[in-house]
Design a protein around this nucleic acid. Structure first.
Length: 349
DNA sequence: CTCGATCCCTGGACGC
DNA sequence: TGCGTCCAGGGATCGA
């Protein structure tokens, strides 16, 4: 019985790491080497300096495309209309104070937000509603950005990526080692759900894969990072990576809007074990999946497989004899771990 | 440092 | 059938 809660429209889509990776892999087949003929803009309130886009992009060549967390990164080379590089070494902006030796590097960052799509289409294909950017390429194709809610972002970066917003992001989930993962989680008292979603901790995790990873590792979303045991952290690290790999293998989760670079839907949504499954039986134990709000996000979990953390000691709980035993076990744990408390050396974020 | 609230924006679900 | 209301959610931002 799911009275008030509307069955979460499992119709919401959010491009997370696997979806962005799928789009990137698709675009990588055709984009590198293409020259940009021109740029058409619709609504631009989600673009940083929209007027710069046509100016900087027209005539540029797309060198490569890759993913950084949930961002798509297109590396560009500026070119003059005749096809020759417009910025020969040393010939650029000498009076800006900008250092020589820094080749003019330009990147187009695209974040798909909730409903963004970046697709490669033939000009004769219907332009979907809410298409706000069309980039015409020299192979006759069009790179189109479509985003109904405009929660996405498009930003042009001139200069090294090291000084771009990308540099603020945390570890790449699929590349981070177990040790690094643990080092980022263990010192934090925040709820694990929030930590996994925090792009400064890990770049690329969103609501779906966070819930799926926690389900797989049997960890309740409201647990605090610092309370996770080593085995739990190890399991979570492995669970996160396997969930992401499997999702990439199935080309991501398509719930409604998400499509890859060719407009094809993914299949991972059929594998979801927790996300969007409120009231349905846990595929491990049969208990009904529940939905609660953690870190301001709806969070799906199995109340039997993923045990809730003990509530904070309150006047009530103190009355029972839990206090002394809890204290005792804490100090025992300290001893067992070699008395290692939070060392300031490891702390600094 | 950590937390919660707020805003952005639209389509789809829901209630009447 | 139609219309109004609610709400999701990533990320930035602000105040507590």
């Amino acid at each position: 019985v799911i009275p008030t809660s509307r069955v979460l429209s499992s119709q919401d889509d959010m491009p997370e790491l696997p979806e962005v990776e799928t789009v990137v892999r698709g675009l990588r087949k055709t984009l590198p080497g293409r020259r940009i003929l021109d740029v058409w803009l619709g609504k631009t309130d989600f673009i940083d300096e929209p007027e710069e886009l046509p100016r900087q992009l027209t005539g540029a060549r797309i060198e490569s495309i890759h993913r950084h967390g949930k961002f798509l990164v297109l590396a560009l080379t500026a070119q003059s209309p005749d096809g020759k590089p417009s910025t020969p070494p040393g010939a650029e902006a000498p009076d800006d104070g900008s250092d020589a030796g820094t080749p003019s590097s330009r990147y187009l960052l695209v974040h798909l937000g909730m409903t963004g799509q970046l697709t490669s289409r033939k000009p004769e294909e219907i332009v979907k509603p809410h298409t706000h950017v069309v980039i015409r390429l020299d192979d006759g194709m069009e790179l189109r950005y479509t985003d109904a809610r405009r929660f996405g972002r498009i930003q042009l970066i001139t200069g090294p990526l090291e000084s771009s917003p990308l540099a603020q992001l945390g570890a790449e989930p699929l590349e981070t080692t177990r040790a690094e993962f643990c080092a980022r989680i263990r010192p934090r008292r925040t709820q694990i759900k929030a930590l996994l979603l925090d792009q400064q901790v890990l770049r690329g995790m969103g609501n779906i894969y966070t819930d799926e990873s926690l389900w797989r590792a049997r960890i309740h979303p409201a647990r605090r990072g610092s309370t996770l045991s080593n085995p739990e952290l190890r399991k979570l690290h492995a669970a996160m990576q396997s969930v992401l790999r499997e999702a990439i293998g199935l080309r991501g989760s398509s719930i409604s809007d998400y499509v890859d670079s060719l407009g094809t839907r993914g299949k991972y949504q059929q594998r979801h074990r927790a996300y969007g499954r409120e009231g349905k039986p846990c595929s491990r134990c049969g208990q009904h999946i529940r939905r609660i709000i953690v870190a301001g996000r709806s969070s799906f979990f199995c109340p039997r497989c993923q045990r809730a953390p003990r509530a904070k000691a309150s006047a009530k709980t103190r009355k029972s004899n839990t206090k002394s035993s809890a204290r005792g076990s804490v100090s025992k744990a300290r001893l067992a771990s070699g008395g290692r408390a939070k060392s300031p050396a490891i702390r600094r974020r």
